[in-house]
Design a protein around this nucleic acid. Structure first.
Lengths: 174, 174
DNA sequence: GACCAATAATAGGAAGTCCTAGTTTCGCGC
DNA sequence: GCGCGAAACTAGGACTTCCTATTATTGGTC
């Protein structure tokens, strides 16, 4: 399964050899793509026995964290940073599997709430244990590396306008 | 489009508050996911005018770099680090758009070669110019950050067994 | 009070990824 | 020379993501 050389390094070499520009950017982007592919694959392997995928798991976790166990689909999309139609799709499948239930919003009839079921809560619990067990598939890296990587990616996200920096000098205010 | 807070930092906070483990791993993985989503989105926006997506573009680049402009699909899958069936899918679409042509392998009748066409070469050229122009969507980051990020992700890939380190102590040998 | 723009969700469609199952072909071993 | 496992590709299916367009509802404006 594993190559005797680093294909990204090979790409850098070819890219440079052909005199093409932005090698570092190309390389970084390719690395992100590949890292994502690896990590997602590992996580989905771990989640499969529970009938979950990472996106479904993330949705369930979000509901678990909410006060009432229910959230409008739209709000979930914002928090999960995915397109509204992706949330509809995710909730469809979670509902099909009985891990979530669609509920009318009491005040706004346009809004639909996704409410986690007891089965859903049980699934999150087990799945979380399994993921923590394998450190989300990145257990092979030391904690310092993970933090450093996280910080680098945060810069990337900030530069991309993913969110606005509230205050550079204060810790998260709660 | 951009939130007034960092949703990943918020996730860390909640995760910690609930006493769940592997916070750094969870955070790093979520960051990778989001970074991938952002970068891929930007790149695909740039490529759309040329009728390309990132995966199609990568396939064309690989063919451009090959000596004869043609490669077996299987070899492409290995180099691009994707499943064989993904290559079939990609080549289907490239062929549909006339950027690639399927050719019989001269010696091995099991093997199919994908050969880049003149239109394909032209498309790669224009698309590459456009991508380099915007530094693959990560131009906002300084070169040092890109290199650092790349190195971190290389560690992750190495730890995941993505490839085997040829020699730990030498710099990349060319 | 009526109208109209914005908001929330969904339907349908295009793409990408992977997996499991075929079919065809190769090449090694006996 | 035959057979049989391995290799290369494709078909079909599940899932995720996004986009555009549609429907229902809300809330502010005149």
């Amino acid at each position: 399964m594993s190559l005797p050389f680093d294909p990204i390094e090979e790409a850098r070499r070819q890219w440079t050899e052909h005199g093409w520009g932005a090698v570092d950017a190309m390389s970084a982007v390719t690395s992100i793509t590949r890292a994502h592919q690896i990590v997602l694959g590992r996580i989905n392997e771990v989640l499969a026995p529970f009938g979950l995928t990472f996106s479904r798991y993330e949705a369930l976790v979000l509901l678990t964290f909410s006060r009432t166990g229910a959230l409008p689909l739209g709000k979930m999309g914002v928090r999960l940073m995915v397109h509204p139609t992706s949330v509809t799709n995710t909730i469809d499948r979670l509902e099909r599997d009985g891990l979530v239930r669609r509920v009318d919003h009491p005040d706004d009839r346009r809004t639909v709430l996704a409410e986690i079921t007891d089965d859903g809560r049980a699934a999150v619990k087990e799945a979380t244990d399994a993921l923590v067990e394998v450190q989300f598939g990145v257990g092979a890296l030391p904690k310092a590396s993970l933090r450093s990587l996280d910080a680098q990616l945060r810069s990337l996200r900030l530069a991309a306008g993913d969110f606005t920096e509230p205050d550079q000098w204060s810790e998260q205010p709660r």
